[in-house]
Amino acid sequence: MEKQFNSFSEFYPFYLSEHDNTVCRSLHYIGSTLVLILLAVALVTSNYLLLLCLPVVGYGFAWIGHFVFEKNRPATFQYPLYSFMGDWVMYKDFLKGCLSRKTN
């Protein structure tokens, strides 16, 4: 049964709980970093076809993390907007050092 969330701040702790595995989180960070690099390259070079790669790179790394390491279903299937927001908030929190280190 799908959980109901009334706000993103209510959703985010659930989102983090779905990303306990360090390899899964690392793959999210790699995918997000590559998305930002691809976006910058596309804009600087005016090669806008590269933009088509953004979802493949971003979600590809994340989904490998979920299916192979976390062994769960990505939250994006049930909560696409909140999950997208969660990816970037988790990335920001990681860069700021706000996330606790997991040991699995």
Rank of each mutant, 00 (worst) to 15 (best):
F14A: 01
E2G: 01
V23P: 00
H19I: 05
V35W: 13
V57S: 06
S46M: 08
Y91M: 12
H66D: 06
N6G: 15
K96Q: 14
Y91V: 13
Y79Q: 03
K71P: 09
L51P: 05
F67G: 01
E70S: 07
D93R: 12
G97T: 08
Y82E: 03
L43H: 09
S83N: 02
A62C: 07
F77A: 08
L52K: 10
L34I: 11
L54T: 11
L38W: 02
L95S: 11
E2D: 07
F77T: 12
T76H: 03
S26T: 11
M1S: 11
R101K: 15
S9H: 11
L43E: 06
F11P: 09
T22N: 04
V57W: 07
T76Q: 04
K96M: 13
G31C: 06
W63H: 05
V23E: 00
N6S: 13
F84A: 13
E70D: 04
F8V: 05
V57F: 03
L95P: 11
L50H: 00
T22R: 14
P13W: 03
E2M: 11
L50C: 04
N6F: 10
V44F: 05
K92G: 09
S83F: 01
S7R: 12
T45S: 13
E70Y: 08
D20H: 11
F94S: 08
H66C: 10
L50M: 07
L99D: 09
I30P: 02
Y29A: 09
K71A: 10
G65I: 01
N72P: 07
S46F: 12
H28T: 05
L43S: 09
K71H: 15
